[in-house]
């Protein structure tokens, strides 16, 4: 339905959970919420087609979507939790170490304004153990920013989110899960998907430091987030309370079984639509196909 369904390989994770080929997820009959948000589950600017379901993470998001006129919001829980179901920890008793820190990130149309060095200094001064900085692909490819973080610790990037079904790192979430399972703590300077994912993967979550700012960002939303989820903010929030809150946001307890999810996504046996791909490749690949 929308290319955002493939972001981070969400559709691929859902296909694996449903017992289908994870490399070729069939077309999803609706919109999968592709990141934590405090609106209707859709990403900003997503051209919503009326009547199509939005597969949201939590019942709270469904209520919010309804109040915004989205009548078709359907709670599935987040793809992250489905990933946890298909990828049990191979070494559940292994030693975890240090903190993985996710600096607030920008994207193609909005960069982040703020002092990265000040944030790095605060994180290094706060965290007791080694720090892994996980940069979003956007900042990872900005050499100066990446260098700043590399001077302070290990730097990783889980991969490219994807766009218009192209370049999607379909193993994005698998890599993120493997990284999170190595760390004792997950932290960020803004509450977002990564902190929630980390809490669900067994890290103690924290949100602190200069929150920075997106270009043209509505700051009222950031303030509202701090007011509504204080249990997830701070250097050392109560891990039990914080994890419970994170799990609720991800839709723990709401997950559908494979057969039910298949029916919800339009993936019933005998009713499958072909996998979605970038429909028109670039001229170079057309040429090579013709030559073959």
């Amino acid at each position: 339905m929308h290319h955002a369904n493939h972001f981070y390989g969400h559709a691929h994770v859902l296909a694996e959970y449903c017992g289908l080929d994870r490399d070729k997820p069939p077309r999803i009959d609706g919109y999968v919420q592709h990141g934590w948000n405090v609106v209707d589950g859709l990403g900003g600017g997503t051209p919503y087609v009326s009547g199509r379901p939005i597969f949201v993470w939590s019942e709270q998001t469904r209520r919010r979507a309804w109040s915004m006129g989205r009548r078709q919001a359907t709670v599935t829980g987040s793809p992250w939790l489905y990933l946890l179901a298909v990828e049990p920890d191979p070494e559940p008793d292994h030693e975890r170490e240090g903190t993985i820190f996710y600096p607030f990130h920008g994207w193609e149309r909005q960069g982040v304004k703020g002092d990265h060095q000040r944030l790095i200094d605060e994180v290094i001064a706060t965290e007791p153990g080694p720090v892994t900085f996980c940069l979003y692909w956007h900042e990872y490819h900005i050499a100066e920013i990446r260098a700043q973080y590399e001077r302070a610790g290990r730097v990783v990037c889980h991969g490219y989110r994807g766009h218009q079904w192209r370049g999607t790192d379909t193993r994005f979430l698998y890599k993120q899960l493997a990284e999170l399972r190595r760390h004792r703590r997950v932290a960020s300077n803004r509450l977002g998907s990564a902190v929630l994912y980390g809490a669900a993967a067994g890290c103690a979550p924290a949100v602190y430091g200069d929150p920075m700012q997106l270009e043209r960002e509505d700051i009222a939303t950031a303030d509202r987030i701090r007011r509504q989820w204080p249990e997830l903010h701070g250097v050392h929030p109560d891990p039990v309370e914080a994890t419970a809150s994170a799990l609720a946001e991800l839709g723990a307890g709401q997950l559908a079984g494979p057969a039910e999810l298949r029916a919800m996504l339009g993936w019933r046996r005998g009713h499958l639509e072909p996998a979605e791909t970038a429909v028109v490749a670039d001229a170079k690949s057309v040429l090579s196909e013709e030559a073959a």
Partner: peptide, 25 residues
């Protein structure tokens, strides 16, 4: 499941919710 506006699809969802791995078809 507000987007399941057709009985066959909604039945399939309910069958799945009942923990049965069968398709109504």
């Amino acid at each position: 499941w507000p987007a399941a506006t057709e009985a066959g699809t909604l039945t399939a969802v309910l069958v799945g919710a009942a923990g049965l791995d069968v398709d109504p078809d």
